[in-house]
Amino acid sequence: MIDDEMNIKIDDINSIEKMCAATWEPLYRFIYFKVQNREEAEDITQETYFKAISHIRKNNVKVDKFIGFLKIVSLNILRDKWRKNKRRGSIVNFDNINPESASVEDCTEDMAQREIIQNALKSLNGEQRTVIELRILKGFSVEDTARQMNKKEGNIRVLQYRAIQNLTKILKDEH
């Protein structure tokens, strides 16, 4: 590990190599933790060293704790990337969008249909309504419905057939 107060001469290639060798692994892990993508973490790590060394050379700054300085530079690079992506937004090709599949469902129409069906069900007699509720709405088998209503399976089939016919007639008459 690098001595935090190691005297690095930025113009000396050996000093730069020592600094990079000593700090690349913790810096890369720090960046990878933030982006969760190997290629992006490698790119940002490389960009971090480039910007950090350029800043130190340009401003003739003495850095006491290189790993802390590098992490701050990497965070600034990440923030810039995130801001740029946020401003840019996502690219949408309007030619590939199907308006029917992309549109938001209007729940008022569903509620109106549900209300019409409930009113039609109320128009049926008690046995027919019960058969429709058990067989169609709750998904019971003919056998289970017959057991629940204390009737024979054949009677349940006939009752269901007549209930559906009456329900269809009621719905047609209302619309």
Rank of each mutant, 00 (worst) to 15 (best):
M1G: 13
I2A: 12
D3H: 14
N7S: 15
I8E: 03
I8A: 01
K9L: 11
D12K: 13
I13R: 12
N14D: 06
I16W: 07
I16V: 13
I16F: 07
E17W: 14
M19W: 00
C20H: 01
C20E: 01
C20K: 06
A22R: 05
A22W: 02
A22L: 10
A22K: 07
W24R: 15
L27V: 00
L27H: 00
Y28W: 04
Y28G: 10
R29S: 11
R29F: 08
F30V: 15
Y32D: 04
Y32E: 09
F33I: 14
K34R: 15
K34S: 08
V35H: 05
V35W: 02
Q36G: 10
E39S: 08
E40T: 14
A41L: 02
A41F: 01
A41Q: 03
D43H: 05
E47G: 04
T48S: 06
T48G: 05
Y49H: 02
Y49L: 08
K51P: 10
S54I: 09
R57C: 10
K58L: 14
N59C: 13
N59D: 09
N60S: 09
V61W: 10
K62N: 14
K62S: 14
K62G: 08
D64P: 14
K65N: 15
K65P: 04
I67F: 00
F69W: 02
F69Y: 13
F69H: 05
L70R: 06
N76L: 12
N76S: 15
L78H: 06
R79F: 09
R79C: 09
D80G: 06
D80M: 04
K81P: 10
W82E: 08
W82C: 05
G89K: 10
G89W: 02
S90W: 03
F94M: 00
N96Q: 10
I97P: 10
P99W: 00
P99N: 04
E100L: 15
S101F: 00
A102Q: 07
S103M: 13
S103T: 07
V104P: 07
C107F: 03
C107T: 13
T108A: 11
T108C: 06
E109F: 02
I116Q: 09
N119T: 07
N119R: 08
K122C: 03
S123W: 04
L124T: 02
L124K: 00
L124S: 01
N125D: 06
G126M: 12
G126N: 08
E127C: 04
E127V: 04
E127G: 02
R129K: 04
T130R: 14
T130F: 01
I132R: 00
E133R: 10
L134Y: 01
I136F: 00
I136D: 04
L137W: 03
K138T: 02
G139H: 01
F140M: 15
V142Q: 02
V142C: 00
E143A: 05
E143S: 12
D144I: 12
D144E: 10
T145G: 05
R147A: 06
R147K: 14
Q148H: 13
Q148Y: 08
M149A: 00
E153M: 05
G154L: 08
G154A: 10
I156M: 05
I156K: 06
I156E: 05
V158D: 03
V158M: 06
L159K: 12
Q160Y: 01
Q160P: 12
Y161H: 13
Y161T: 11
A163W: 00
L167E: 02
T168Q: 11
K169Q: 12
K169Y: 06
K169G: 03
L171G: 05
K172E: 09
E174Q: 13
